[in-house]
Every structure is written in C-alpha cells, then in structure tokens.
Computed example of a mutant assay.
Amino acid sequence: MDERRATVLRAVVENFIESAQPVGSAAVLEMTRLDVSPATVRNDLAALESGGYLMQPHTSAGRVPTEAGYRYFVDGLGPGSLDSTGVRQVGAFFAHAQGQIEELLADTSRLLSDLTEYAAMVVAPNHDLDSIRSAQLVDLGGGRLLVVLVMSSGVVERTYVDVYSNPDLEAAAQGPAAGAASAVLAEALVGRTRTQPLVVPTTGDAATDALVAAALSALAADEPHPSELYVGGTAKITEQFEPASSLRSVLSVLEEQLMVVTLLRSLVDRGLSVAIGSETGMKPLAECSVVVAPYEVDGRTVGSVGLLGPTRMDYSKALAAVHTVSRRLSASLGDGDGAHVPTGFSRSAQE
C-alpha cells in the first residue's frame, strides 16, 4: 500500500487500541494531520477494508482493524523501549532478585504483568537440554541422602536416595564412603545432560560403589519434569474480554500448563515475536495476541517469557517489556558477574 494509506491504517490501529471504539475519518485526520480532505480519508478507509486490513462493525460506523491490519501494524514496529519508570522498575527488580530460580521466574512473571497490565507467562528451562554444572551427594544426617544437581540453566534438582530399606547402605551413608561417592558422582555427571548414557567405573570400595549405584538408580527413577510455567497477573485481563465466555476460554487455556508451554515454544521456534488471533493456532485465543521472547543461558535458549492480552493490546509497550525482561533474565541466569545463584549454593559449587 502507499504511504498515505499506511499512515491511515496505523492511525486506526493506534486509536482503536487506545479507545476500543470504531475509528472514523475525522479521528484519523486529527491524529495524522494529513493535508487531504475527509472524503479522501474515507476512500482510503474503504480501500483498506476491501484489502482486508479493516472491517466495519455495522453501517455508518467507523472501522476497526482485522488480524491482517494488526499484522501490518506490528511488522512495522521496531523493538521499542520502556519508559523511564519501566526501566527503573526492571533495574531495581533484577538488582535485588534473590532466592532459587523457581522464585525468580515466578517473580519475573509478576514483574512483566505489572509493566503491561496483561497476563504474563514465563517458561522455565527445559531440563532435557541442560548440562549438569554441579553434582553433590549430601548427607542430611540420620542416614538420609540427597542428590543435588545444579543444571547449566541454574535449575536445582533434588532427588532423595532411599537407604533405609538396606542396612548396609544406611551404614555406608553415615561413614566416609558418602564423601567418596559424592566425588565419583561429580566426576561422572558434570558436563553431561540427564538423558545422556552414563557409565561409571567402580572404585573397588564396596560401600562407595553401593552408594553410587543407589544414587544413580534414584536419578534414573526421578525423570526430569516437563518445563514449569509461571503465570502472573491473570486478574489483570478479566476486564479486557467481552463477553464473559471469551474470558472463560482464555482463562481455561492459561490453566493448561503443557498447552501454553507448547504454544510459546512453537512461536519461538518459528521465529515469531507476536502471534495475533488465529496465528496462535488455538481457537480459544482467537481474540487474543501473544508476545514472546526467548531467554538464554550460556548463549543457548533455555526458556521464554511472554504476554497474553486482547488483539487490541499495546504492542509497542508489550514488545519493549518482553524483550527488556528477557535480556535481563538472561543476564541474571548467566555465568557472568551478577548471575543468579540459587540459595544455598556458592558460585564455586555451580562452576
């Protein structure tokens, strides 16, 4: 389309996002200051409707954007930037973020929702692809053992080792064999993923080898869980969908963790930062848009952050918030200075 009609379309989209009311030629002229007559703008609106970019809810009403109109608008947006208040809010959050990664991701979802007033989603790292950064066999006392794995993404996995059912194991767990077994596990596991084949040579010490075998058996039985999903600000979208049946459909999707995780991963894999309406591939989200960005650890994508809102969402603000938060989350989980360290583990233990 020519530049004038592109300007008219952008004006309609921006006005409708702000007002939620059909947009007429007078409003377009007021926003754009185009040096043309109202009749010319009306012709442009009619042409954009014929081209599938706009629609008219009813006769004599103004126009509203279609999915194609929103897509044209979004494709013309740059990455955008948060306002000074948002920048300070994000900076303060990551400067003081503490606790384990699960807490960080949950808090990040609430931060992203607070920045935008939409429902925010954070997909935790995919354990299947993580390498093991640290492995320890921890003596909890009383013959209780715990295998603690710190993954490359910062996720901490804990697996209990049953020693009570075997008197010999219980005795070994209370002696020096426990420390030796921890060293053997670290040597065998660090640098590998949970799904890689593993061959651990015996040490020749029966107690140590028995503890190592018990720990490996417990790890094999405790398969990595699917990536967790953290959702923040669900209540913020309750007034953005009409009728109520539309809201119920959206909320039902947010309750299906695997469905949302699959959707966000699919969008990232397809290289999409915004999916509008039917582009999500999910009928209950026909009136929604999703904005998503991946976050990384050691240069590898491990998860994603996203926003869910109505198709008339403020795309510029949403894109800026998602990309800013994803970059800061990557830095927080990375290996450099300021990286996030799970509570209870020193940085040397992770490295």
Rank of each mutant, 00 (worst) to 15 (best):
F73C: 06
G69N: 10
A213L: 09
R144Q: 11
Q56T: 14
G62K: 08
L149A: 11
A331I: 10
P167F: 08
S348N: 14
S152F: 07
G303N: 02
Y230V: 00
V147P: 01
A27W: 10
S346A: 09
S165N: 11
A188W: 05
V64P: 06
V123Q: 00
A92S: 13
P201T: 06
A97T: 05
S153C: 09
L48T: 02
S37E: 10
T193A: 03
L149G: 11
Q136V: 06
T202W: 06
G175V: 01
A206K: 12
G91F: 12
G154C: 10
L285A: 02
S304F: 02
L285Q: 03
G336N: 10
S131W: 15
L140Y: 11
S152W: 04
M1I: 02
L185T: 05
L267A: 04
E351N: 11
L129S: 13
D269K: 14
F94H: 07
L251P: 06
H58T: 07
P201N: 08
E14G: 06
V297N: 00
A221C: 10
A26Y: 14
L258C: 09
L247C: 10
E239C: 03
S165H: 13
G334D: 12
A173Q: 02
V231W: 06
I132E: 03
S134I: 06
M259R: 15
A27T: 13
L146S: 10
G91S: 13
T66A: 09
L48R: 02
L112W: 00
S246G: 08
L258I: 11
G277E: 04
R194A: 03
D35W: 08
L254F: 04
V13N: 01
M282W: 05
P342Y: 00
